[in-house]
């Protein structure tokens, strides 16, 4: 009985296949492997957004709303650039512009019901970000509550 030939010709399981590739019995095209890996990476990268994104957008609670910086369409697209620029100006240089400040945004856009931009599914920041599946990192440190209300609550 020729044991070796008997074993090496039968690819019975993925493990054996892998072993054969590893030991050089089988050769795979490097290009194919790289392509397969790339496709897999792409798929894996897409997964969280598929999970997180929802089909129907929530109705936004825009709080008091109004427009003080730019029009809503522009803001929807660019608010993050303003915020990032502003945060460096404030933190490092102490330039505290009233208008372009996260605190000021919250002051107007917090819900009139619970004074927050993050408390509910349809809160101003949450609803959009959830729909777009973009994680907001602001409110781990920043308060999502209107300052005036925070002061009232914490005065006692």
């Amino acid at each position: 009985m020729n044991l070796m030939s008997d074993q090496s010709l039968r690819i019975s399981s993925p493990v054996v296949l892998l072993q054969m590739i590893v030991r050089g019995y089988l050769r795979m095209d490097l290009k194919v492997i790289i392509r397969a890996l790339l496709v897999m990476c792409l798929l894996v990268l897409c997964m969280p957004s598929v999970w997180a994104a929802q089909d129907t957008p929530y109705k936004l609670d825009i709080g008091r709303g109004g427009q003080c910086v730019r029009d809503p369409v522009w803001m929807r697209k660019n608010h993050m650039h303003l915020l990032i620029h502003q945060r460096d100006e404030v933190v490092h240089k102490g330039i505290r512009d009233d208008k372009i400040s996260l605190k000021n945004c919250i002051e107007c856009h917090a819900s009139t019901k619970d004074d927050s931009v993050i408390a509910r599914e349809d809160s101003f920041c949450v609803a959009c970000h959830r729909y777009e599946a973009v994680k907001i990192d602001c409110f781990e440190c920043h308060s999502g509550t209107r300052k005036s209300v925070w002061l009232q609550r914490n005065a006692k």
């Binding site: 109004g66 240089k93 102490g94």
Partner: peptide
């Protein structure tokens, strides 16, 4: 208009809620 409206709405009994802080446009 909105800020006036906001200020009007939020003037609770004896308390000005919409704090119009003075911004600083100059770097330290």
């Amino acid at each position: 208009k909105t800020s006036l409206g906001v200020a009007a709405v939020t003037v609770a009994p004896g308390l000005l809620l919409f704090d119009v802080a003075h911004g600083k446009s100059e770097a330290v």
